[in-house]
């Protein structure tokens, strides 16, 4: 791959996820060096930059379970030319979305009031805390998403394949063994 004259800017974040996809991203191992020849990181847990500026690619892990997730996702969508949803939670809500069959008030009631062993429980109401949404949503239900990398987490190889396809201007494609939802 020829190094482009100007490095592409990439931002990453984790919303209602477990950072497992970021860990898997690191599993591209020594290929990180090759990648760093092509890209530089903006907002990301890797850089600790808090807000993203204009980027070529935004990679978002995790679904949307609260108001802050929505704000961050909108920041990414507004700044990133290409937005990639990475991992099961970003793609279909994943594990957190398994609460969707229950009503949120019932969940809060159970966790903070009714649960066995709780005394004087109260639902946290600090304005610093983001409020939870009534249902957990995958990213594409709230903003337009350009590409998806499914998997829980997707393997480093799958992530590498999608990124290199994109950097080379190809439509990303994962064949057997790379595409998986678990």
């Amino acid at each position: 791959m020829d190094a482009p004259t100007k490095k592409l800017k990439v931002a990453t974040t984790s919303l209602a996820g477990c950072f497992g996809c970021h860990m898997s991203f690191l599993d591209i191992d020594e290929r990180l060096f090759a990648l760093l020849d092509l890209v530089e990181f903006d907002r990301s847990p890797i850089t600790d930059i808090k807000h993203c500026g204009p980027c070529d690619i935004g990679i978002v892990e995790g679904g949307l379970c609260n108001a802050e997730n929505v704000h961050v996702l909108r920041e990414f969508r507004a700044n990133c030319r290409i937005l990639i949803a990475i991992g099961a939670c970003a793609v279909n809500g994943g594990l957190p979305a398994q609460r969707n069959s229950l009503s949120l008030p019932a969940i809060l009631e159970e966790i903070y009031h009714a649960q066995h062993g709780l005394t004087h429980g109260s639902i946290p109401d600090d304005p610093e805390l983001p409020l939870p949404l009534d249902k957990v949503h995958p990213l594409h239900e709230v903003v337009k998403v350009d590409y998806f990398i499914p998997g829980c987490p997707p393997s480093g190889d799958a992530i590498w394949k999608v990124l290199t396809d994109l950097l080379a201007g190809r439509e990303p494609e994962l064949g057997h063994g790379l595409i998986h939802y678990d």
Binding site: A67, V70, S103, L104, P105, L108, E109, I123, P124, D125, P127, P130, L131, P132, L133, D134, K135, H137, E141, V142, V143
Partner: peptide, 23 residues
């Protein structure tokens, strides 16, 4: 989105009693 994001916070607002901007 097809749904109203602000309305999706209504249940949480009701349970926490919050109505600040961030809510």
């Amino acid at each position: 989105p097809a749904f109203d994001l602000d309305r999706a916070l209504a249940g949480a607002r009701q349970m926490t009693g919050r109505d600040d901007d961030a809510a």
